[in-house]
């Protein structure tokens, strides 16, 4: 009975997850005429600087998200239930607008002759810098950091606070010795959910980066657009493997047993 109920999901997973993965692997290991070759993989060394830059920018964006997101999630979880709902809604509100539109709007606001510079009558050059790309990543992916941490903290038993204080913890030590370790799984979920989409983003870097540099997502997109499917597939494959490795490493940090959504 169970297996019948699961059949549509299994079918879905095979058709849209497993099969495409095999197609990616296939394309990564053949040349344009369909013969087996390692050329696509060896060609990847040319993309090392792009890989590096993508990883660096997304690590920074994730760190910023965590620094902003954790206190926010903590405040939200400690607020009155009525206010909690309001906070969550405010956080989700921007996500009702599509990511592409939000990014394009940020570009219009921060541009050299954009809304901000016109309003303040200044000439800040923001769009086209790496800072702008990091800002865009943080802006677009912050909710993915806050929500898992918020859920995690709000699930912590209220008595934990009382117990910690009974045993002589002040506010700071309660936070660092009790709450932080207990919310580790939320942090790891949040980090994953921000890091992975930031590494592979392409729209944000194209629009806010002014096109002066490329992230790996842009490279993959361009490979596919110009018809170089094989190299594109090879880059995607290596990306997936790298992400898988880093997730496994992160899982270790989280004691494995509270891994949340990962792997």
């Amino acid at each position: 009975m169970n297996s019948i109920a699961a059949a549509p999901h299994v079918f879905w997973a095979i058709l849209f997850i497993v099969l495409p993965l095999f197609i990616v692997v296939y394309y990564a290991f053949v040349d344009s005429s369909g013969n087996f070759s390692f050329e696509n993989i060896t060609a990847l060394k040319d993309y090392a600087p792009i890989f590096g830059l993508s990883v660096e920018l997304s690590v920074i964006a994730t760190a910023v998200c965590l620094i902003i997101g954790y206190p926010l999630a903590y405040i939200m979880a400690r607020a009155k239930p009525k206010n909690q709902k309001l906070f969550v809604m405010l956080l989700m509100l921007p996500m009702w607008t599509n990511l592409l539109i939000r990014t394009y709007s940020i570009m219009a606001i921060l541009d050299d002759g954009g809304f901000l510079n016109t309003l303040l009558n200044t000439s800040f050059h923001i769009v086209g810098t790496k800072g702008a790309v990091i800002f865009g990543m943080v802006y677009d992916f912050l909710p993915y950091m806050v929500l898992p941490i918020y859920t995690c903290i709000s699930k912590i038993d209220k008595h934990m606070w009382e117990a910690a204080q009974d045993l002589g913890c002040n506010t700071v030590t309660t936070l660092t010795k009790v709450i932080l370790p207990l919310s580790m799984s939320g942090i790891i979920s949040g980090v994953t959910m921000v890091l992975v989409p930031s590494i592979s983003t392409f729209y944000i870097s194209q629009k806010l980066g002014g096109g002066t540099f490329e992230l790996i997502g842009d490279t993959i997109e361009r490979q596919f657009v110009t018809g170089a499917l094989n190299v594109g597939a090879a880059i995607s494959l290596v990306m997936m493997i790298l992400i898988l490795i880093s997730l496994t490493v992160m899982n270790r940090f989280g004691n494995g047993d509270e891994g949340g959504i990962i792997v």
């Binding site: 040319d46 993309y47 600087p49 792009i50 590096g52 830059l53 660096e56 790496k130 002066t212 540099f213 490329e214 490279t219 361009r222 490979q223 110009t226 170089a228």
Partner: peptide
């Protein structure tokens, strides 16, 4: 395509 990537990589890190 390769040259275009080289152009994008040129002085891209700070």
């Amino acid at each position: 395509n390769t040259l275009w990537e080289n152009l994008k990589i040129a002085d891209s890190t700070e």
